[in-house]
Amino acid sequence: MKQRSAVTVLVVEDDANDVLLLKRAFRKAGTEPFPVIHVVNDGESAVRYLGGVGEFGDRRSHPLPDLVLLDLKLPRMSGHEVLAWRSEQLPLIRIPVIVMSSSQEASDIARAYDCGANSYLVKPVELEVLVEIIGALQGYWLRFNETAAVTEPRTFGTRLAT
């Protein structure tokens, strides 16, 4: 079990309703640790956030997350594209990404894993089920799962040696 003060989750989701429901599910699940949730609404912003550029340049207000929840169908840059970008970013690839999509198509699931997703969850319609999923996710990914330290990438978009 890990020792850490503030846990951060980056939610990449363009549907404001889904964001609200997700936050509610985190609250309702009541599992420790309760994370600080940062939200971006498209794939391009997710890349900028993780890369720490532009409006996301200050790591004190936009810390690197411990976990990313990624939708697939996103404006500007799809979830698959975000995953493909991340697979080239050596330190950032250590941050676990969980896909949360409506799609249950085998091709979407396979492609997500091929691009390096750590887990794939299908968004349920029942809020009750979402609460259950988030509770399990908090326990596993934020509490028990050991993550590797992520050193800051010095330049955005270039491949860095470990």
Partner: peptide, 18 residues
Amino acid sequence: VSHDLRAPLRTMEGFSVA
């Protein structure tokens, strides 16, 4: 259908429960 039709359903169900 799987993506776009179910998104509003989540909203209906989720906020009714809330």
